[in-house]
Amino acid sequence: MSGNFFIDITFWVVSFLIILGSFYVVTARNIFRGAIGLSFVFICVAIIFFLLNAEFLGVVQILVYVGAVSVLIAFAVMFIKDVVDGSKYSKYRLLSAFLCSFLFFVLIFISQVTEWNSMDSIENEDALAGLEGFYFEESESGSILIKKAEVLSDGVNKGVFINSTLSIGSSLISNFLIPLQVIGFILISALIGSLTIIRQRRKQ
């Protein structure tokens, strides 16, 4: 169980770093340092994704969040003045701290009380093979059947959690096709919208 042990240790260390980094982001007076702390949190979250076998999501997290969003924020910080101690508290600081910690405990309580479905309760062996092990795909009268593979051979696929990229891709264009299109429209309208906002100022 050496693998699990290392994964657990990494998880606890990284979670600690995430919470520490998040606190730094919301308390730092220097906005630029806050932005850098934010990108640190993003990287740590990507590590959590890697630990959860979500390689694709982890890589996208680094690509989009660290490579684009936090660089954009750092870029924006350069344009505003009073960066070094520009991040001030409002007068509701204590109230919001109380509210947020209350919400935090409520969330923990709910998550502990709720009985979540567990992976252990799956009894279908083919499903387990499809999720984490090796499996065959057999197409049979319109639906695809998953069979557990006993011997390793070329036609064997890895489980959806081990090789998630393929499955994410296929579900994006089958189950989630319409949300995908909507996301595309949102991205384009955001692009055009932000350009329009900037250009309107330029004319004046």
Partner: peptide, 15 residues
């Protein structure tokens, strides 16, 4: 029947 459709629903969170 465990189809690939059913397996893809396992990754809704990722999507």
């Amino acid at each position: 029947d465990v189809s690939s459709f059913a397996l893809n629903t396992a990754l809704s969170g990722h999507v």
